[in-house]
Design a binder for these strands. Structure first.
Lengths: 251, 251
DNA sequence: CGTAACTTTGATTAGTATCAAAAATGGTGG
DNA sequence: CCACCATTTTTGATACTAATCAAAGTTACG
């Protein structure tokens, strides 16, 4: 099932600790406890499932490098991507509590993932209130992002939705220290964008052409350049206020 | 700002404890600690703000009775309701960490709310890992509901969206023990439904007429009767799997 | 009993989906 | 290194869902 480990794996859970420490204060002992969590490191190619909604086992997955998506299928068979994840994201904490989830986690790029047994995590949480609090807070941050997606899908037109998604991914990459300038790694195909913003691939293509024609962005698979950050923010009605560390983003 | 207290207030935070205990195990001591949290009880009429995105203070709010909505405004001035809350819901845990939120909490019916100082809650959380874990889990459950809303807005047509919302509210009321039969309290106007499912009031009206004509529901302000639960579930592509205690719902 | 909020109706338009197919791209094995 | 294949992007034509605009009923409440 899993891709052979062909590239050197990141050796530690540092990305996860960095993420938690970015919004919560953790002592040295607590960080050490997190780094010591038993885990299994895995490298997966683009398209592979990190966790499927059909899985019965439920380890907790942390994204150490690369990009991933959470998606749900409707009864009619169409897919909705409900979240895009990047380095350091805690992917499926709900699996610690619920055996069956309706979420599928899929690698958008080549990824490195650490699987942590739910029992080990719950054990640490029970003994370290600060860690429990950090995980709580992380869930709240992810909740804020989800709510913004709801607004995006419910009350913005196609052009704004797409611009908003571009802004969000760019901002989160900056906050995670993955980009400095106006160039970003872009992990999604146009069809994946469509599944994320609730449009068809054809329409996404036309909107993107418009954004390019208006000199707001450059975009091909793997790479995005934002030429006019203010313009794109304005088209997408984007304010990073709901994201932690949004102030880190260059204006 | 606040409505005068004209009706007897619920005397305790029991609804909150019941909610947390419904998905997490809490000892007697932990329950007592939660019930002992300092708080201010307030009764608010429909339409009043429980918390505004302009608030600078940030107490934590718990909904003791009634219904409330979380909503966000887009830059163009349209409103998106991102969540509907009922008895026992923890309304804005994010306020414990972030002073400014882009969320407005508004009473959909007459409500009773308890405001708990963020500092008091954080204090309890720091000393009681099980409580921290329960709050974490609660945030994860709310996250699952948000993701389902994303799918609903992104990949379902108007009729399915509305049917799905009706099913969700009904199921959550049953899980909270607020309804036994096929009759439910219905807290929203058609314009509020529109803001929740990303449609216009006019279109919501027409879809509702269709659902009524198909003998699936009866619905006026304040009251909903589901005549054909299987039919409505099927129209709304609804499975309660993402909700805790969904099995409580009669088939 | 009057007024504001909510629901309903009708006519028209805008935005996005759908369907079909061609061009470009990227990876793979010979 | 090239030919081939699958995937992705792009184009065009048409259909349909839901928005918009306007106004008339209806309900609830003070």
């Amino acid at each position: 099932m899993e891709a052979a480990v062909l590239t050197p794996l990141p050796s530690t859970l540092a990305a996860m600790v960095r993420r938690l420490a970015s919004h919560s204060s953790l002592s040295g002992a607590e960080r050490a406890k997190l780094l010591d969590l038993p885990h299994r490191l895995v490298s997966l190619d683009r398209g592979k499932y990190i966790a499927s909604d059909k899985d019965t086992s439920n380890p907790w997955a942390v994204l150490l490098t690369g990009f991933a998506s959470s998606s749900q299928m409707t009864g009619e068979g169409s897919r909705q991507i409900v979240a895009v994840h990047l380095q350091g994201d805690l992917l499926n904490a709900q699996n610690c509590f619920v055996s069956a989830s309706n979420l599928s986690l899929q690698a958008l790029t080549k990824v490195h993932v650490a699987y942590i047994p739910a029992s080990a995590l719950l054990d640490v949480v029970s003994n370290h209130p600060a860690i429990a609090q950090a995980l709580w807070r992380d869930a709240l941050v992810q909740g804020a992002i989800s709510r913004e997606w709801i607004s995006n899908l419910g009350r913005r037109d196609a052009r704004a939705r797409i611009a908003h998604l571009l802004c969000e991914i760019a901002t989160r990459q900056k906050a995670a220290g993955l980009s400095a300038g106006s160039e970003y790694q872009w992990p999604m195909t146009q069809s994946e964008i469509a599944d994320a913003v609730g449009l068809t691939t054809v329409h996404v293509n036309r909107i993107l052409q418009g954004l390019r024609a208006d000199k707001l962005i450059e975009l091909d698979r793997g790479r995005m350049v934002i030429h006019d950050w203010f313009g794109l923010k304005s088209v997408g009605d984007f304010t990073g206020a709901y994201l932690p560390h949004c102030e880190l983003v260059a204006a």
